[in-house]
Design a protein around this nucleic acid. Structure first.
Lengths: 238, 238
DNA sequence: GGCGTTATTAAGTATATACATAATATCCGA
DNA sequence: TCGGATATTATGTATATACTTAATAACGCC
């Protein structure tokens, strides 16, 4: 949490109000569940306009510290749900961001009809053909992540023609097939024989997995499972 | 992405501007890296005040779609970094949210000097005494997560006296020792013998792990490792 | 007392205006 | 031509004002 800095490194303006309110919440001056003064009162107390106070309180509400409802007023959140946010960049950038060099190999590429399960999950029309791709991402020439993906070419025009050995599907899609929404799930899975072979680890090793599905409006673009080499850690600050 | 709804379910006001700008970005009318019109121009184009346009563009910048810099103007983000945000509630609420009943058992509790590694990680004073706790969380009477935690009582006054069999440490800390910041990391680890025993799974099974450290200003509050029973999935929408 | 209508309230949004700030662009002198 | 001072510019923030909206509270009727 930062902001415009005043003479002694303290934020000014709405960020100062935000920080002061947060300090009072932390100090239990306004305990969880308790209502805090109205915007108008706070505005007067801080000698600021209501819009400025609104900006500060809105920021705290977005961060999960306050619950705000029209007419009901503003209350300190009862269950201080903390949000962890993870940036999900292109794999290449993730690797390079750790000071390693990235490379990828397109291990397999074929067009085939979607399986029943895939068609179900992605709401694909019956008998739809998908592009199935298998990519190995390398960091400093060592296996980093194994990517198994299906793409629905209808929702990603141009994939068929793209040279996916030069640019990874991952990156191609990010740049050429913007999605409107999707889901992401993290889990831990035991390496199967195939994964173990790809990633150069023992079968049964604990692997970090990311499953992601993305959509462009009503159309599914892609579904992917990423299995990372053992030891992978996804971290963030809260 | 939602907002105030107009007659046909379409957002109004600044959210309409946000959605329109986003649509143009998606349609490549403003391709990645390209500058978009100035706030003042957009305001005129949309027939709105600059503050309203500002609100819309700020929202898109926070979501990672735009890069904004004073004087330099506003550009479509070159690397559309998508952010996944996870709510990190109290474990009890997470379990109950899935329609199961939560219970916990305090397996161990002792006060001991911090190990060298712990003191290092948490910047504890030499020879500091920490409270070490081991808790098993149950969902519908089946193991859900195994929690190994150390707490620095100095930064969490009252923990020593708290009845941690009635309320889990997890929840006690959330309610009584608000933190200012911290770190969180997700990974996959193989179950050791102890974890396997606690969670009722085979040794070597792939477990989803969350490591978290929280601070109250300069003081470390707690460090915890959560190992979830096999099959645990952390999901979110993006 | 129970229930539906109305009044009130506090947040949400929109606007015009003004000034601040951080980059960039320009200019000018050595 | 280089480097530093200066002007310019787009965003960032603050303000007063006004109106909207959702939810609660009050009211009055039956």
């Amino acid at each position: 949490m930062s902001g415009r800095q005043g003479p002694r490194g303290r934020p000014q303006g709405w960020q100062a109000i935000r920080d002061d309110v947060l300090a009072r919440i932390r100090a239990r001056e306004w305990p969880p569940g308790a209502p805090i003064p109205h915007e108008a009162d706070l505005a007067e107390a801080y000698g600021a306009a209501r819009a400025t106070v609104n900006r500060a309180l809105r920021a705290l509400a977005e961060a999960g510290w306050l619950d705000r409802r029209r007419k009901a007023g503003t209350r300190v959140a009862l269950n201080p749900v903390r949000r962890a946010t993870f940036d999900i960049p292109v794999i290449r950038l993730e690797v390079e961001g750790r000071g390693m060099t990235h490379a990828h190999r397109l291990l397999a590429r074929c067009e085939r009809p979607a399986t029943a399960a895939e068609a179900e999950r992605l709401a694909l029309p019956a008998g739809a053909t998908v592009l199935a791709l298998e990519t190995l991402h390398l960091a400093d020439d060592r296996p980093w992540a194994w990517e198994c993906r299906i793409v629905w070419p209808k929702a990603a025009p141009g994939v068929r023609e793209a040279d996916l050995t030069a640019i990874s599907v991952n990156e191609w899609l990010v740049r050429n097939a913007p999605f409107s929404h999707g889901s992401i799930a993290f889990s831990a899975v035991a390496a199967g024989h195939e994964a173990a072979g790809r990633l150069g680890c023992a079968p049964g090793a604990a692997l970090f997995a990311i499953d992601r599905t993305t959509w462009a409006g009503p159309d599914p673009i892609t579904e992917v499972r990423l299995l990372f080499a053992p030891g992978h850690v996804l971290s963030s600050t809260i």
